[in-house]
Amino acid sequence: MEEGIITAIRVVPLEHYVLLSFLLFSIGAAGVVFRRNTIIILMCLELMFNSVNLLLTAFSAHHSDPCAQVFVFFIMLVAAAEVTVGLSILVMMKRNVDSVDVNQLNRLKG
């Protein structure tokens, strides 16, 4: 059993996980710029969070550091809180400008 697990973890080289994480992060970043719907933007943010979680977990597994996984746990905590607040802001936005189009929020135009 130990053999199997060691083999499992070590089979996939760390670089693969890092690249995957970067890819997901880039897609998320592009998505924030790409979309106009505020909800989709928030979801892309979640995607970026997750890519970071994945990265941390990969490092934790390859270098046997449990602190990283605890850190991921905390990131999830904070992400949850942030999603609630973000969504409530979105609700308020819908109430005030009657649209979820993020381009409607341009009062800070210089």
């Binding site: 973890i9 977990t57 597994a61 746990f73 949850a80 999603v83 609630t84």
Partner: peptide, 24 residues
């Protein structure tokens, strides 16, 4: 799960998929 991060996998499914996406 592939990385043997069992706790995280569970928490991930429960919190993210179960709570946050439902909220969305």
């Amino acid at each position: 799960i592939l990385l043997n991060a069992q706790f995280l996998a569970m928490v991930h499914v429960i919190v993210y998929t179960g709570a946050i996406m439902v909220l969305f």
